[in-house]
Design a protein around this nucleic acid. Sequence first.
RNA 1: GCCCGAGUGGCGGAAUGGUAGACGCGGUAGAUUCAAAAUCUACUGUCGAGAGACGUGCCGGUUCGAGUCCGGCCUCGGGUACCA
Length: 847
Amino acid sequence: MSRYNAKVVEPKWQEAWDSAEVFKAIRDEAREKYYVLEMFPYPSGRIHMGHVRNYTMGDVVARYKSAQGFNVLHPMGWDAFGMPAENAAMQNNVHPGDWTYQNIADMRGQLKPMGLSIDWSREFATCDSEYYGQQQAMFIDMMGKDLVYRKNAMVNWDPVDMTVLANEQVEGGRGWRSGALVERKELTQWFFKISEFSEELLTALDGLSEWPEKVRTMQKNWIGKSQGLQFNFKTIGAPEGFEELEVYTTRPDTLFGASFAAISCDHPLAKALEANPDIAAFNQECRKLGATEEALETAEKKGYDTGLKVVHPFEAGWELPVYIANFVLMGYGTGAIFGCPAHDQRDLDFARKYDLVVTPVVCDEAQNPDTFSIGNEAYLGAGHIINSRFLDGLSIEGAKSEVNKRIAAMGLGEAKTNYRLRDWGVSRQRYWGCPIPVVHCDTCGVVPEKKENLPIELPKDVTFDRPGNPLDRHNIWRNCDCPSCGKPAQRETDTMDTFVDSSWYYARFTNAQAATPTVSADVDYWMNVDQYIGGVEHAILHLLYSRFFARAMNLTGHLPKAATEPFNALFTQGMVCHETYKDPDGNWLTPYEVKPVAGGYETDIGQPVEVGPSIKMSKSKKNVVDPDDIIDQYGADTARWFVMSDSPPERDVEWTASGADAAWKHLQRVWRLADEIAQSVDAGEIDAKAALALQKATHRAIEIVTDGIEGFAFNKSVAGLYQFTNTLAKSKADKATKIEAMKVMAQMMQPMTPHLAEEIWATMGGTGLVAQAAWPQVDPAMLVDDTVTLPIQVNGKRRDEIEVSADISKEELEKIVMANETVQRILDGNAPKKLIIVPGRIVNVVV
RNA sequence: GCCCGAGUGGCGGAAUGGUAGACGCGGUAGAUUCAAAAUCUACUGUCGAGAGACGUGCCGGUUCGAGUCCGGCCUCGGGUACCA
């Protein structure tokens, strides 16, 4: 018996595919295309199980679609800019570029042996100047279409390192390196006008029928459309220029329940009041809260009474105090609100703390309006208006429109639709990113670079011995000629958010070497991505930015109108999780640095290990496991088979080492079976019944495996293949029938275990490569069974089962059921109340 | 805090509102072997001798019938705009 040796077999077939250029995607208008794309990886240096799972899923789809006759595009690239490269530069004194390209080489070296059906000729990294130069060209085009602007925005500022920090680099309000308390600081930064597309991005979600509902819901909530009222309060005692305070509210119906007004610490009025040292100090304290929404929302609600008042618009003598409050966001609405504590939990918490009036103005229909009062929980439900003069008795909706009408008539404001979605700040004060291609000229102001000067390449000679952006202190690079007047000028030193890089890479893959961002013949043919696959963690930012960018590319002539929604179908796979470990000093440990002991883990030097929850594998938490061991030990097919088994693709998986061995055993078994069949000799009479049974099982397997792949339930396809293997192993059918069955097995296994499938295909005498064979077709006649097993329930509980012919009549079935011993015993002479028959499924006797 | 998910045997998981636990791991017993590995066969949710009872995170509801639908919770995970 010949043995299956993955180490020999896998490279052999990979070479065969390469030399036949099986996976090279060639534009061919005569053929229908299919574009499969997995979210490209960040080149951290090692592939992990998440990558293996993600790229195997994409590969299964790509190979399956190819077998169905589509002209498949399945490319790969690298999301190569970003912070880790700069961190490595600081820690290990390596250049971010060298570090990144070395990582790419390492990871490519790990990916290629997996036998993925990728067209590697289209590979690029976003840090290639050929790529980011085209991105700069599009930035300039977007400036031309007025999609880009500058404004002030907040960043995390480390006052010791004198540098901008990412949110991730702020831990408990302190800078991760310096330990200094982080402040919010205003900087002039570049923005894309994504908010101009709020409505469009929202309504277009309805057309994304092949996206998961949860992703569309998350994006909808993120865009956050709200109908409200924007109006002015008259102020009393405010500095000059602040005679009015403009607020935005989604609850104008609760205006008579107002008990205070509140402004953000970044509101112009709050800043104007900073002459008062107490207010300056309070504002400063608020700014130390950090810049994230989470930090602001979970912080204890605090306010400072400015002493100013605003006048209620419907009652001249009614004055409300004006607070500066740490929970009011400058970035949403007008940065000022009125608080109605009875019907907003945050406002209520605030009012209880500062002892403000709480007047209910919406009454629960189930309550008595005279006694309805608010405890420590705001009332958010439906009801009618009370305590509100001319609004009393109205519904919430009725009151809203009445208030809007009166405010508009008084000339104080108007109804307004607001969106939570903010413009996309793309400025990063960092080196390892795409330089923003503009020049600052004393004469001409801010001007775009000339396209013929692109790419504006990053200078190589930089150092990371000091914090901050090396571009800022690289005077040779910074100094340039103004593209407009030719006089000496200075380059912009901000680079772009890496989300920009990943917002159009899918389009670049359609012609990765072009001298323009895209080529219309190629985007026209290959776009859209038919199946996009990636993690749910990208449900909002990456996917929303990509949807915006595709629209911007359409407006600047780089994508056709048909590609403004670039991803036809989206599948979000679950994450690969692992426990986290910390040593007694609180440093993260990798799973390789801990060893199991009774009751837990300890370090190499015997220190106790604190075990944390199982969470998304990430470099920063060090809970990453290498798939290399499995690939080395068992081969790529085993690794691929293993990650497709068991867990449904959309679910998170917890990495465990057991099970890989089982996958390997199964593949060995299939090979052994194929080998036995090839060497077998028919003896005696041919068993026609067994042959038919095997043929039927084959077609049932085709149905299960096909449905599994179509439905992104690869684990069910795998289970079906296990079952089919068991059937085939036990079959008494003749050799020819078994060979046919085994050939179908090879075709069905090909997307998941392509190397073994080729080997079996060749052994069974298949023509050509199984990678190029057509997908097997189900013969519906082979799926029909003569008899069917029906469970019999009594009162919904299963009591017995009967075997009946598949086309039995209802009357006949009733007779059989009533004659059934178990039913008779339970009925005990009584007549049944009801008999429910679901044809082919179940019988339920109701007593 | 807010938004979005998930929760089923010892474990990974299966189940158009219709036999809960397919398939795999692990376990037990047996065959084979000088012995072992490998392989093959059978059994394997819990309780119970059995009939049967109980079982899908918790509480309640709809239904002839609920893991599945509805309401209210709990726990865990993802996102929260400078991690990618």
